[in-house]
Design a protein around this nucleic acid. Structure first.
Lengths: 139, 139
DNA sequence: CACTATAATGAGACTGAGTCCCATTTGCAT
DNA sequence: ATGCAAATGGGACTCAGTCTCATTATAGTG
């Protein structure tokens, strides 16, 4: 039994059939650690001669987000996606190359806990990200 | 000297001329504590018989964000805006009515400080928001 | 393995938020 | 008051993302 589940298993667990297209998307995202837009992915597949319909790319990304397998980010006015660990985490985002590092943040979790207590508010999620420029983008 | 600067003063400080349209946008946003899209604002003005061109609404919102007078949020796939205090802050966001409460968060600031130290990364900003449902939206 | 129900795909039409252009209007410094 | 740069607005335009529907592929079943 592999520690990291195969793409097919991940798809199964999400209630999705394992298709060539979905496998390609998961694979492509696994190989990069930056966030990518649907359009970018579509063009990447096209240029690699394993085209996937644009609708399919969008649908797949949406399903994978719902399954909790991807994080979403905003690149200007478009949405970008990135494979992520199943554990809750935060992000260190390079605004130049869109490379993203996952962060643990016990302090943030504590903060959320306290806010939840202090307000008559039913907390469902939270998000804490840090933006800046990574070492390689600064030369 | 007023403690809260007038809209005209805020515009001046941002290097913008004080026009009827810009005053209207600032005023409209001051009167609500939820985040609104450009389209919503446009329709609101139209229905109040003080129409403002759609381009102008977009341009004004963009300028005000650049001036740090507004925060931006994502409502589904569109951008929403809300007047905000000039001090750095975080948010408690009701996903049902989009009402937003500003939060102080010393713990988050500390966290950012530590991450900045620990990574070879030039931090330029950060964002920490909590999402859920507010008391009145839960009935 | 063959068969079948049904999930998934893809091509292209479509939608709508946001941008651009440019002729007209407005704010404001002198 | 006057002039000029900044701002406006209407409408054409762009393009990310969605929808439709005929075709194809998956995976369970006998």
């Amino acid at each position: 039994m592999p520690q990291v589940p195969s793409h097919d298993t991940m798809l199964r667990q999400a209630g999705l059939r394992a298709t060539r297209q979905r496998r390609s998307v998961l694979e492509a995202l696994d190989q990069r650690d930056d966030a990518v837009t649907a359009q970018d992915l579509y063009l990447q597949f096209k240029s690699e001669d394993r085209s996937i319909g644009l609708s399919t790319v969008y649908r797949t990304l949406t399903s994978l987000v719902e399954a909790g397998l991807l994080d979403t980010f905003q690149h200007g006015d478009e949405q970008a996606f990135r494979a992520c660990s199943p554990r809750h985490h935060h992000h260190l985002v390079c605004t130049a190359c869109h490379q993203i590092t996952e962060l643990e943040a016990a302090m943030v979790e504590q903060w959320v806990g306290r806010v939840a207590e202090g307000h008559d508010f039913q907390v469902s999620s939270h998000r804490a990200d840090i933006f800046g420029v990574c070492a390689s983008c600064r030369h």
